[in-house]
Design a protein around this nucleic acid. Structure first.
Lengths: 215, 215
DNA sequence: CGTTGCTTTGACCTTTTGGTCAAATGCCGC
DNA sequence: GCGGCATTTGACCAAAAGGTCAAAGCAACG
């Protein structure tokens, strides 16, 4: 059995790749699991499905991860980093409106280029975030509080129209992720003639937040 | 076996209640199933769970619905009506901004008072809408196209600031449903001291759409 | 080449789960 | 109270799914 590093939370176990084969197979499994979990949810996905998608046998997959849940935990924890990064990048020294519009653009890009990640996350939250609630209440909350305070200071300085900064962040998340999570609905409503809803979405969102926040 | 009415799509079967007991039990099952499906997803829910929640035995539940899928289909089809109703209510003869703000308020109320419905729907869409895609492409699309045309005419008449009407509708859906679907995240980020995020959410959304649409 | 340790898998086990069925129970008009 | 119909359920079945294990490959190093 390959080495395992137990996280402080106890049951979660993530593999530590050392050899080339391990790195490759763990990456294969992660990619496959992302695909499968994001389109069927946790319970709706089977280890066999993930293994097949990764081109491995089920016992082989379970050689690298101790359980189905461990694969899921691994994905969620690595994803949280990527997903929160654009928010971290907001620069207190930048021009307020440009910083926020840039954030909107980056989030929308993420939704376009990595819809599976967004859907995996959505699946988890919609079902009550059983596995990541602690993370939300600590890491996410403190980061959001931080940026909300920044937005508030910009508003107080008259460099941004006033609005509840927390709900401003929620609205950015909601609007951008909608195009990943509800992709099928968006395409169904726009009709088959529209192949890519993202350009129009970007223009709409930039307009929306400009009108909302411009002093 | 009680009577069944097959819908035109074939596999879907919905019960037709005739007696008092049937009406009561079908309602019990529907309530229980909504609760269970919305918090665990389709595959994550078991017939036993739903039956227990409804206070019935599993075979008894399956006496009223031929299968787990039939229960799910029943919920989805009845929900689509409730869910689309506020959009239908938008009145072409009303004052444009008031009509849209009213729609936002009604949708947000739905999210507050019926979050389970919203989550059931979200679960279905996030996972690719396998069971209701046809409905989205026909009924939903035509209703949305209809209202989008109305918004466009208001904009052309200078009674509303210009913006893509389809994406305007998407943004209303996205923002209002976010408070139901991502409820745990919203509460986790706002912190335990905030017991009800909805009043602030309503104020924020009204401000947002007013600044967006006011001429 | 042969030993050693990493990797892979076929076969198997157990639990869960959707669904069936015959028999039992209860309800209601007569 | 009784006949007939609706309702309920305990017992059961088959398939699916998570996970184990011993044994078989296979790679790398002496």
């Amino acid at each position: 059995m390959i080495e395992q590093s137990k996280t402080s939370t106890g049951s979660k176990v993530t593999p530590v790749a050392t050899t080339r084969i391990q790195k490759r197979n763990i990456a294969l499994i992660a990619d496959a699991a992302l695909e499968v979990f994001s389109s069927h949810g946790y319970r709706g996905s089977t280890v066999d499905q993930i293994a097949k998608q990764a081109g491995l046998s089920k016992p082989n997959l379970l050689y690298y991860f101790p359980s189905k849940e461990a694969v899921h935990d691994y994905l969620l924890s690595t994803l949280m980093v990527t997903w929160l990064d654009p928010l971290r990048e907001i620069d207190a020294k930048g021009e307020p409106l440009d910083e926020i519009l840039g954030y909107v653009r980056r989030k929308l890009e993420l939704s376009r280029d990595h819809p599976s990640e967004s859907r995996l996350f959505a699946n988890e939250i919609v079902q009550g975030a059983p596995r990541i609630l602690p993370l939300l209440e600590t890491e996410l909350k403190s980061l959001v509080d931080d940026k909300a305070a920044l937005f508030q200071s910009w508003m107080d300085a008259g460099r941004l129209a006033k609005a509840d900064p927390h709900h401003l962040i929620f609205s950015i998340w909601s609007l951008t992720q909608h195009y990943a999570d509800f992709d099928v609905q968006v395409r169904a409503v726009l009709g088959c003639e529209v192949t890519d809803p993202f350009p129009a979405a970007e223009e709409y969102l930039i307009t929306l937040f400009t009108r909302m926040l411009k002093v």
